[in-house]
Amino acid sequence: MNQTTNSQTPEQGQASDNNRMPKIKIRGLSKAFGNKVVLDGVDLDIFPGESVLVIGGSGSGKSVLLKCILGLLHPDAGSIEVDGEEVVGLMGEDLDRVRRKFGMLFQNAALFDSLPVWENVAFGLIQGQRKPRDEAHAIALEKLAAVGLGEDVGNLMPAELSGGMRKRVGLARAIATEPEIIFFDEPTTGLDPIMGDVIDRLIVKCVKQLGATALSITHDMASARRISDRTAMLYHGQIIWVGSTATIDESGNPYVDQFINGRAEGPIEMQVRAL
């Protein structure tokens, strides 16, 4: 299939960034589950301080891409470098050291329901950085305030929170350790449009304040335009287009056009049947 017709290659999309070293450099990343090939040679560079978004249909491998970078899944082939260090195949303490650079907001926030909200936020500080509990508590309250939640919320259990509040707590947890890189897995999915906008603004604010590099995945185009500088489209396991989010409407790529306009008809055939 000639997917790359009329599309920019990843290198063209990043032409202006050639002189800088990428924060995350992905080359030839492949991952299959049984017979189903999910990633088939993904190439992507993410530069320091930018916010990159990966779009793609459901089941196109966006989450798998994030999980490979975090070392939660082991890719079948390819390389992932973070700050020039190869992370594929890292184990134990080395992997933990690299993971401390990352923060992640999970799709459904993935809060630990056995711990109160403040301990969720402080988790990376207490367990990862071995900070004393009272110091971590103070930082947790500060981070909760940064996402617009009061001290009283800190003592609630995650089960008592609404969807929007869970996302905020998840965001506070992701930024609590002041990571260099933050991943956002469908940050607005399951929220109403207004809450979606609130979360997006918080994301932009937090990422700016930390000066962090951000990688997000979503299929919510309104959210995509708000939070990202650059967009990459994942289709059939490959990055078929990379370009500035501001010019995505003029991409000239039929796949991207179909996706951002949400049309059922076009070159992308949705897999209706689960594989």
Binding site: R99, M104, F106, A110, G128
Partner: peptide
């Protein structure tokens, strides 16, 4: 049931990303 729910709600992945080994924790 508890660990299984943690698995399917990505809490175990969250532990990993917070540099905490789920086997130890």
């Amino acid at each position: 049931a508890e660990i299984g729910t943690m698995r399917v709600t990505e809490q175990i992945d969250a532990l990993d990303t917070l540099a905490t080994n789920p086997f130890k924790y």
